[in-house]
Design a protein around this nucleic acid. Structure first.
Lengths: 190, 190
DNA sequence: GTCCATGTAGACAAATCTGTCTACACTGAT
DNA sequence: ATCAGTGTAGACAGATTTGTCTACATGGAC
């Protein structure tokens, strides 16, 4: 996952804020990350920050939106990269996730994390999280053969994936999680 | 899940603090819950609080310990209550979880929530979370027939359960989660 | 009776966090 | 040349949070 911006020029102030916040929020959590730190790390003045984002909450929502675009484009790309020629496309799922789980910066699903941190308190977070999971599930459904049970199967698989994500997050053992996920997926591989 | 204390007498100051904190932390998150609120809600003086718990962090760890005991005793009890006479014991799992998921106060796994909120920052939280999941997995293993793959199967099932927990948490649709979990478990039911 | 553990009420210090405000500099378009 | 937009630096207000401290009450053990 992620180069984020390959452009060689220095990104605009807004982008620097967004990317810095994305990193800090993901790494340390949102409530644990003060605005002042985001501002210092992105090398921007306080007034500049507040010109682009009216509040920390607005920044949080913008970061989630950015994260969603970024993650989904990585995910669909990884799925096509690992797509096997002859065998069922679903086999791409575990290798794709393996890329992510083995990334040194992996800290679970940003949407699940954000939701547990401030799901109830910041309106919009819940919706963003649902949208994200919905799109992830749809991408998984795209790997399954058309059938009357496709949606149902995709949901079960998405739930297994979420389990593997959180398990990797606290157990720090990507290999074991992936093997277990593979076990759970076996019946769906035809 | 839970009556917590059936004793008719007023619980001790320490217990009131512990139970109040448990509720508030679980419902609104830990960082979102100030010490002052815990103190006010448990009807205790500030000094009394600090005589029992040297800091908020100590309270957090005590609450997790309490939660672990409480949850595990509910879990094993629910599993035996739903144990079918003639069919495989694993069939008790979904009905047991259904009790929890349908509880109006359900807000996901307290350990996963706490870990995402302050896993890195408060030493001890990570360990408590691992211990909890380890014990949960062991309880699940107890439902499986002895075999060389029992541990491996229990891990896969525990991951599916965690997925169902978080899915219920953000989608608020216990029925769908439980059906999907049932799908995932089918191969393990013999 | 005295002492100690345990309790209540609430003021207070110190840190931290969000958001506002003043003052100034650079750049490109008109 | 001027002006609007965007930027920097940093002081400041106001709220909130954790944890300490003083002063006092009660009830059981010895």
């Amino acid at each position: 996952m992620k180069p984020a911006t390959l452009e060689s020029e220095r990104p605009s102030a807004r982008d620097r804020i967004l990317l810095t916040a994305h990193d800090l929020f993901y790494r340390h959590g949102i409530r644990a990350t003060g605005i002042d730190l985001v501002i210092a790390e992105s090398g921007v003045a306080k007034l500049t920050f507040y010109r682009h984002f009216p509040s920390k909450n607005a920044l949080v929502l913008a970061v989630l939106e950015h994260r969603h675009r970024h993650w989904m484009s990585w995910f669909t790309d990884a799925l096509t990269r690992h797509r096997p020629r002859t065998r069922p496309p679903l086999e791409a799922l575990v290798p794709a996730l393996a890329e992510w789980f083995h990334d040194g910066n992996f800290r679970g699903c940003a949407f699940l994390n954000t939701m547990t941190e401030l799901g109830g308190s910041l309106p919009g977070v819940m919706a963003a999280c649902r949208l994200h999971k919905q799109d992830m599930t749809a991408a998984i459904a795209g790997l399954l053969p058309a059938s009357r049970q496709r949606k149902r199967q995709a949901l079960a698989i998405a739930i297994a994936v979420d389990g593997a994500i959180v398990h990797t997050q606290f157990e720090r053992d990507a290999k074991a999680s992936l093997k277990a996920l593979d076990d759970l997926l076996r019946p769906y591989l035809g």
